[in-house]
Nucleic acid binder design. Structure first.
Lengths: 126, 126
DNA sequence: AAGCTTTCTGTTATAACATCACGTTAATGG
DNA sequence: CCATTAACGTGATGTTATAACAGAAAGCTT
């Protein structure tokens, strides 16, 4: 089940809600229900194969198959494209800022909204 | 209505869901319905009086009454306390990292999970 | 004051996201 | 073979958020 969910997410460039995934997989498997999808998504996110976009209640396949890492997501307001940014320095800086008030960080949620390079180019032409 | 919602959020130190707020206010005003609360919360967040915690689907009163600013939230896994961190430098750094791939940032969602100073102190004693 | 617009609120219903609780099946290993 | 565990199926429910439309209050214009 995890593999099937991951395949669906990989076929799609953008984020999908759990119910989007459910809709796709129901084309083959009728009777598929939300808990099944959520279980698979939960395992996949734990394994780092899928990331959850907290501010969208949606999921995307990880762009980097091979590694353990923390991530920063950029989300284009125009086209919805999501991109994964890896920057340990920035995450360290963030932990540093938090630690100024004695806070010990364990997990970061960073989601940046704006306009991607492609959409900026289109808009510049128009 | 905005004032009443804001008062409720200020009385509470931690985050509240829209329905938590609704529950509080229903003690006085029966018949209060979700859209009323969501409208008030929407105006308050637009005005910067309230911040939304995207990863919790919850809301907190802004800790800084007086100003326009972007914010970073720290959230304690142990006690649930939320703290607002202001760091324009870090936000600039974040925009900078995103711009390396041509992305133009307009809004940042930054939520850090971990353990606050108070909870760390308690744990250290034990 | 009458009529108009604007803004906020009330109300019902429903959409969208997520989990609980329990039962069944299938593989694992003693 | 049987106990255990892990994954999945199933139905119901819980939680978060919005759509669509109606009504009331406040301010403006004439």
């Amino acid at each position: 089940m995890q593999d099937e969910v991951l395949d669906v997410l990989r076929e799609r460039s953008g984020p999908m809600s759990a119910y989007d995934v459910l809709g796709q997989l129901r084309q083959d498997k009728l009777n598929l229900a939300p808990p099944t999808i959520y279980r698979a998504l939960s395992s996949l996110t734990n394994r780092g194969k899928v990331h959850r976009l907290e501010s969208l209640n949606a999921f995307v396949a990880c762009q980097y198959d091979d590694h353990e890492h923390a991530w920063i997501m950029s989300i284009c307001d125009s086209c919805g494209a999501v991109n994964e940014i890896v920057s340990p320095e920035l995450l360290n800086a963030l932990s540093g800022v938090a630690s100024e008030s004695g806070f010990l960080s364990t997990r970061h949620v960073i989601e940046i909204y704006g306009q991607c390079a492609a959409c900026r180019a289109i808009e510049a032409k128009a």
